[in-house]
Structures are given as structure tokens and as C-alpha cells.
């Protein structure tokens, strides 16, 4: 049913899908963690309640993305993770801290609750920074030079800020009153920095990365390269205008910032994907070189084609169940 040489493309597509779904979904809940106000326990509770039913499933997209890489491109998996050994360890520690803090904070005495809030925030920041750093080193082809470290650090800040942005978009959608007003301010602020961040990547990346430079200046990718940053900047600008009007009467339009940010995410991700396709490790391994045996890919693909629609269906169902503004977080 699927030709051998098509399988790597299909799996690269599936992997790309799970990475972008992860970036959006866990992005907003990491963002909520980054923004968590330590001085206001009530708002912290509301914010965490808004991501309560979702964070676990959101994180599973990361496991799927890594799993797909492990399944489809095992040699890339080891090259990438060996090169990123320390940032990966940091990210995992961040994820552990976050995940457990989420549950511990709800079950301990008030004094300790505050401490777990700190852990939650810290874990979210560590996770976002290390993911950003990993993305930066990936883009730089895992070079070890000062430029590469600087770029990766810049990327760490950029991704953290992008997560804060989508997190505030989520909060505008899910909350009301004071917290919503706060979220609008957060969104304005992180929106501006994201604007600068995307601009910086667009300028710096082709300058320091020969491969990207060539890719961006030859057709057909050059067309995309013109469209994508332009679309991002327009969207961020429109988003800023929308934020200035919010909140509207009856809270209409509260979903607009989140949707705009999602579209910006999609554009940025496509920009990255276009820059590197068909390499899974920039300049080293293409998806065909890194792919595992066709019979294994086919075995998992048939299952994935049945199961992924089911996953999407019950994910949508779960979002419908928890549709609307957030209520108090209550465990049963």
C-alpha cells in the first residue's frame, strides 16, 4: 500500500505533526506555568485549574514525537540526543518537577503549597528554556562554537517567550475579570518580544548558517521564506490591535488572541521545516539515510492510521467537556 521510499516522508510528516501539536498544546500549559504569579494564590489556582485536565495528554505529544523519531529515524535519535545530552537532562528534570508539583500542590498544607507553586514555575521555565536551547543547537547543526551557544541561548529565551505568549492567549480564553486583564497585559508584552525574536531569527539564521542561507535564497523555498515572516509580523501586529480592544462586551472575541498565536506558531514551524527538509539532522542525515526498516515502519503506520484519528477524536471530546471558562480546581 505504501512504497518503501515514501515511508520516511510519511513518518517525517507524522513527526512534524506531533511536534507542532506538542508545541501548541504543551506550549500553552508550559506558558501558564511560566506566568504563574507567586504572590497571588487564588489566581495561581485558577491558572492551574485551566490546564488541569489537559497537561498530561499535552505532554504525551512529546513522547509521541520522540517515539516516532525513535521508531522511524533511530540513528537520528541517537545523534541528536547524544549531542543534546545535558539540555535533555535539564528538560527531563524540568518536566518531572512540573508534573509532580502539579499534583503535590493540590494535596499538601498551605505553606508547602506555595513551595510547590514555585517548583511548578521553575520546572516550566527550565523545560521551556532547555527546549529552546535544543531547538537553537539543532538549527546550528550541533556546532560547538561561541556563535552556536549564543544562538541557542537566544533561542532558549525566544521559545520561553513564545510559550508565555500562547499561555497568555489560553488564559484570555479561559479566564475572566482580573486574571483575564492580567493575561492581556502579559500577551501584549510577550507578543512584542516574540516579534523581536522572530525578526532576530530571520536575520541571524541565514547569516550564520550557510545551509539555511542557500535554502532561503533559492526557489522554490525562497517564496515561502518571503511569505512566512511577513505573515507572522502581520498576524502579531493584528494580534496587538485585538489585545488593545479586549475585553469586549460578553467577552466575545476572547478566543481570537489564542487562535492568532496558533497560526503564528504554524507559520514559524513551517518556516523551520522548509529550511531543513529533507534533513533530520541538519547537514548530516536526511530522512532517507536515517530511516529504519520498511517492514517496521509499515507495521506501526497501519496502527497509527487507525489510532491517531481516535486520539484526535477523544482529544476534541475532552476539550468539549471542559469547554468554557475555568471553574475551581476540584479533585474527585
Amino acid at each position: 500500500m505504501f512504497a518503501d521510499q515514501d515511508l520516511p516522508i510519511i513518518f517525517a510528516g507524522l513527526m512534524a505533526l506531533s511536534i507542532i501539536v506538542y508545541a501548541i498544546l504543551d506550549g500553552y500549559d508550559l506558558g501558564v506555568g511560566i506566568l504563574l504569579p507567586l504572590e497571588n494564590d487564588k489566581q495561581a489556582d485558577q491558572m492551574i485549574a485551566s490546564i488541569g485536565p489537559f497537561w498530561d495528554a499535552n505532554e504525551t505529544w512529546l513522547v509521541l514525537a520522540v517515539g516516532l523519531m525513535l521508531i522511524a529515524f533511530p540513528s537520528a535519535h541517537s545523534v541528536i540526543l547524544k549531542a543534546l545530552y545535558i539540555p535533555t537532562a535539564f528538560m527531563l528534570i524540568g518536566l518531572i518537577l512540573r508534573g509532580v508539583a502539579f499534583d503535590f500542590r493540590a494535596k499538601v498544607a498551605q505553606v508547602n503549597k506555595h513551595r510547590w507553586n514555585q517548583v511548578f514555575k521553575l520546572g516550566s521555565v527550565i523545560t521551556s528554556c532547555s527546549q529552546g536551547y535544543m531547538l537553537g543547537s539543532f538549527v546550528m547543526g550541533f556546532e560547538s562554537s561561541l556563535t552556536a551557544y549564543l544562538f541557542a541561548s537566544l533561542s532558549a529565551l525566544g521559545v520561553t517567550c513564545a510559550y508565555a505568549l500562547i499561555g497568555s492567549g489560553w488564559l484570555i480564553l479561559k479566564t475572566t475579570e482580573d486574571l483575564q486583564l492580567k493575561a492581556i497585559e502579559w500577551a501584549k508584552f510577550s507578543g512584542k518580544i516574540s516579534f523581536v525574536g522572530i525578526l532576530a531569527v530571520c536575520v541571524v539564521n541565514p547569516l550564520i548558517n550557510q545551509f539555511v542561507f542557500e535554502r532561503w535564497t533559492t526557489a522554490p523555498f525562497a517564496y515561502f521564506v518571503v511569505i512566512i515572516p511577513f505573515a507572522c509580523f502581520t498576524l502579531l501586529f493584528v494580534g496587538h490591535l485585538v489585545l488593545k480592544q479586549l475585553p469586549l462586551k460578553n467577552d466575545s472575541g476572547c478566543w481570537l488572541p489564542f487562535m492568532i498565536i496558533v497560526v503564528v506558531y504554524l507559520f514559524c514551524f513551517c518556516g523551520l521545516a522548509f529550511s531543513f527538509y529533507p534533513y533530520v539532522v541538519p547537514g548530516q542525515l536526511t530522512i532517507w539515510q536515517a530511516a529504519s526498516a520498511p517492514e517496521s515502519l509499515r507495521f506501526i503506520l497501519y496502527g497509527a492510521l487507525v489510532v491517531i484519528p481516535c486520539i484526535l477524536a477523544y482529544t476534541v471530546f475532552s476539550y468539549r467537556v471542559f469547554w468554557g471558562k475555568v471553574e475551581d480546581l476540584r479533585y474527585y
Binding site: F54, D56, E59, L64, L70, I71, P74, V307, Y314
Partner: peptide, 21 residues
């Protein structure tokens, strides 16, 4: 790879999503 993949696809998403509910 495929065995781990099936674990993620058939088990992890199912338990994580319905745990929320």
C-alpha cells in the same frame, strides 16, 4: 521502536486524556 510506538499510541493518550475527565 514499533512496540514502544504502539504503547504511546494505544495507551498513553487514552489514559492521559480520560484521566482528565
Amino acid at each position: 521502536g514499533p512496540l514502544l510506538g504502539y504503547e504511546v499510541l494505544t495507551a498513553f493518550f487514552l489514559e492521559a486524556t480520560f484521566l482528565g475527565i
